[in-house]
Each structure stands twice: as structure tokens, then as C-alpha cells.
Simulated scan of single mutants.
Amino acid sequence: MSIVRTAHLRLEHWQDCLDLLTEIEQVQQVCGESKHVLARTRFNRYPALIELGRLDEAQRVLEGCLQVFSNVNDLTAQARILSALATVWKKRGDVSRAIELQRQSLAICERLPNPEERAISHGNLFIYLHTGQIEEQCH
């Protein structure tokens, strides 16, 4: 992660972060980077897009990246994308869809050697399940 991008994220300069990522991706394209590398850069756009309320765009970016990561069998990236999509659906208020996506992410994480990815996925799923229970109690 670039220091400048990290600074924009920490300072909540969402549009500056998106502009920088666009510039990075353009340079990568000119340099002939693979679709996989470009998707890794594009994936980093989603937090800023969510914060700017551009959920449809965030979803399109994530779904496009998921296709690329699926094509090259990058399981770690696929799990992260599914978790990010869960965040998009949670922001839309569809907790059941968020839970479904987070469960898919966890299923992939269970096949990965890194326990940290599994722990994060379990934590996210807990949050969505807890949120869903609270919403059911309120209705």
C-alpha cells in the first residue's frame, strides 16, 4: 500500500484516494501489467467508494475484480472481495445478503492456510449475524 494512499485513507480524503488509485492503475496499464495486478489495484477503490456513498460503483468494481481473481484462482483475493461485497450489502441495509456473502468468504478462508483471514471472516460474520438478530427483534 502506498504511503500517499494510506495517508488519504487515514485523513478520509476519499476523492483524493480514488484519484491516486486511478492514476496508479493508468500507469500500470501503460506498463503492461496483467489483469490480475490491475484488479488488485482496482480492489483498493472500494473503501473510498463506500465512504462517498457510491455503492453501485463499489459493487461493480468488486464484482469485476472477483471475476478476474476467480479466473486466476486467487482464493485469498476472492475471499476478500466477497467480504467487501458483504460490506456493500450491509450498507444498503440487506443484512441477509451480507451474511450470505460473508459465509461464502468464510468457506473460502477455511481452505486457506492463513488463520488470520479465517479469524477476520468469522468476526465479520458474527457482526452481521448479530446485526440481523437485532433487526429481527425490532420488527
Results as ranks from 00 to 15, higher is better:
residue 2 S to D: 10
residue 3 I to Y: 14
residue 3 I to M: 15
residue 4 V to I: 05
residue 4 V to Y: 05
residue 4 V to N: 01
residue 6 T to Q: 15
residue 7 A to L: 12
residue 7 A to I: 11
residue 8 H to Y: 12
residue 11 L to T: 06
residue 11 L to W: 02
residue 12 E to M: 07
residue 13 H to D: 14
residue 14 W to R: 06
residue 14 W to A: 07
residue 14 W to C: 09
residue 15 Q to V: 03
residue 16 D to C: 10
residue 19 D to M: 03
residue 20 L to W: 08
residue 21 L to C: 09
residue 21 L to Q: 13
residue 23 E to W: 11
residue 24 I to R: 14
residue 25 E to D: 05
residue 27 V to G: 14
residue 27 V to T: 15
residue 28 Q to K: 00
residue 30 V to D: 00
residue 30 V to T: 00
residue 30 V to E: 00
residue 31 C to V: 01
residue 32 G to M: 02
residue 32 G to S: 02
residue 33 E to C: 04
residue 33 E to L: 05
residue 34 S to D: 11
residue 36 H to G: 07
residue 37 V to N: 15
residue 41 T to E: 09
residue 42 R to W: 10
residue 43 F to A: 09
residue 44 N to C: 00
residue 45 R to D: 09
residue 45 R to I: 08
residue 45 R to S: 11
residue 46 Y to W: 14
residue 47 P to M: 11
residue 48 A to K: 06
residue 48 A to V: 06
residue 50 I to S: 04
residue 51 E to R: 01
residue 51 E to N: 00
residue 52 L to S: 10
residue 53 G to K: 03
residue 53 G to C: 03
residue 54 R to F: 13
residue 55 L to G: 05
residue 58 A to V: 12
residue 59 Q to N: 04
residue 59 Q to H: 04
residue 59 Q to I: 02
residue 59 Q to W: 01
residue 61 V to L: 02
residue 62 L to E: 09
residue 63 E to V: 00
residue 64 G to V: 05
residue 64 G to P: 11
residue 64 G to S: 06
residue 65 C to N: 12
residue 69 F to D: 08
residue 69 F to Y: 12
residue 69 F to P: 07
residue 69 F to I: 10
residue 74 D to A: 11
residue 74 D to Q: 09
residue 76 T to G: 13
residue 77 A to W: 04
residue 79 A to K: 00
residue 81 I to E: 08
residue 81 I to C: 15
residue 81 I to K: 08
residue 82 L to P: 03
residue 83 S to I: 01
residue 83 S to F: 02
residue 84 A to F: 01
residue 85 L to H: 03
residue 87 T to Q: 05
residue 87 T to W: 01
residue 89 W to Y: 13
residue 89 W to L: 02
residue 90 K to W: 09
residue 91 K to R: 10
residue 91 K to C: 07
residue 92 R to Q: 10
residue 94 D to F: 10
residue 94 D to I: 09
residue 95 V to H: 01
residue 96 S to K: 12
residue 97 R to W: 03
residue 98 A to G: 05
residue 98 A to I: 03
residue 99 I to F: 07
residue 99 I to K: 07
residue 102 Q to F: 07
residue 105 S to T: 01
residue 106 L to H: 03
residue 108 I to A: 11
residue 108 I to V: 13
residue 109 C to R: 04
residue 110 E to W: 07
residue 110 E to F: 08
residue 110 E to D: 12
residue 111 R to P: 00
residue 112 L to P: 13
residue 113 P to T: 15
residue 114 N to F: 11
residue 114 N to G: 07
residue 116 E to Q: 08
residue 119 A to Q: 12
residue 119 A to K: 10
residue 121 S to P: 02
residue 122 H to E: 14
residue 122 H to M: 11
residue 124 N to V: 02
residue 126 F to S: 14
residue 126 F to K: 06
residue 127 I to S: 01
residue 127 I to G: 00
residue 127 I to Q: 06
residue 127 I to M: 04
residue 128 Y to P: 01
residue 128 Y to H: 07
residue 128 Y to S: 02
residue 130 H to C: 10
residue 131 T to D: 13
residue 134 I to L: 15
residue 134 I to A: 15
residue 135 E to W: 14
residue 137 Q to Y: 06
residue 138 C to D: 00
